[in-house]
Computed example of a mutant assay.
Amino acid sequence: MRKSRDVIGLPVISTTGKVLGTAADLLFDDNRQLRGVLLDGGGIFRPRQYVPKDNIRAIGRDAVMVDGEAAPVDDKVDTWISLENGDRRLLGKKVLLSGGIDAGTVSDVYFLEEVGTLIGYELSSGWIDDLREGRKSLMSEEPLVWGEDVLVAPEQGVRLRDH
């Protein structure tokens, strides 16, 4: 199990030895499956790029190793969810338990790098509470509803614990 922030900022290197860029974000589909790694950069003369999951050979401690080259971001990529970038980002979204209880806001996500499945969320209740009590983790057997404004946890199969 890895946190997305452990991957963001790592160099993305092709198995040919070429540095493709730095991991700027992770991209997930609506089924909580990793779809790729968004690279930093882009701009007026260079489009944003990402590495599709099928090209990711390893997510290591010091680098993300990939086969082949990066691909330009297209319309399909814009429909995916990311931690920090785009209109469908998770960072800072409030998480509500189905009973209407505020569990906190998303500060990170946990995923299984071997299979690419998002399995949980690190939640913050604000920096004062984070310092006093630490952050919480929410693990769910079923996907959360990724709404436009908030995430809603299902009634069953949710574990919320303090760090």
Rank of each mutant, 00 (worst) to 15 (best):
M1L: 07
M1K: 00
M1T: 13
M1Q: 04
K3R: 11
G9S: 05
L10N: 00
S14Q: 14
T15V: 14
T16M: 09
L20S: 12
L20T: 02
L20V: 13
T22V: 10
A23Q: 06
A24Y: 09
D25N: 01
D25W: 08
N31F: 12
G36H: 07
L39C: 10
L39I: 14
G41L: 00
G42I: 13
G43K: 12
I44Y: 15
R46N: 13
P47S: 08
Q49S: 13
Y50L: 14
V51W: 04
V51E: 11
V51K: 10
P52H: 04
P52L: 04
P52Q: 14
K53P: 14
D54S: 14
D54L: 03
D54H: 09
I56C: 09
R61A: 08
D62H: 07
V64C: 04
E69L: 15
E69M: 15
E69P: 06
E69H: 14
A70W: 07
A71V: 05
P72N: 02
D74F: 03
W80A: 02
W80N: 02
W80D: 09
W80H: 04
E84H: 11
N85F: 03
N85V: 12
G86D: 05
D87N: 11
R89V: 13
L90C: 12
L90P: 04
G92N: 09
K94S: 03
K94R: 13
V95K: 03
V95C: 03
L96F: 05
L97F: 11
I101P: 06
I101R: 07
I101S: 10
D102G: 07
D102K: 00
D102A: 09
V106W: 00
S107G: 06
S107E: 09
D108Q: 05
V109W: 02
V109L: 02
Y110G: 07
L112P: 00
L112Y: 14
L112H: 15
E114F: 06
V115Q: 11
T117V: 03
T117S: 08
T117W: 10
L118A: 03
L118R: 09
G120Q: 05
G120R: 03
Y121G: 04
E122M: 01
E122G: 11
S124M: 01
S125M: 12
G126L: 09
I128Q: 10
D129P: 11
D129V: 15
D129A: 15
K136A: 09
K136N: 10
S137G: 03
L138S: 12
M139D: 04
E142G: 05
P143N: 05
V145M: 04
W146S: 05
E148W: 00
V150S: 01
V152P: 02
V152F: 01
V152C: 06
A153W: 06
P154H: 10
P154G: 12
Q156G: 00
R159P: 02
L160Y: 05
D162W: 04
H163Y: 13
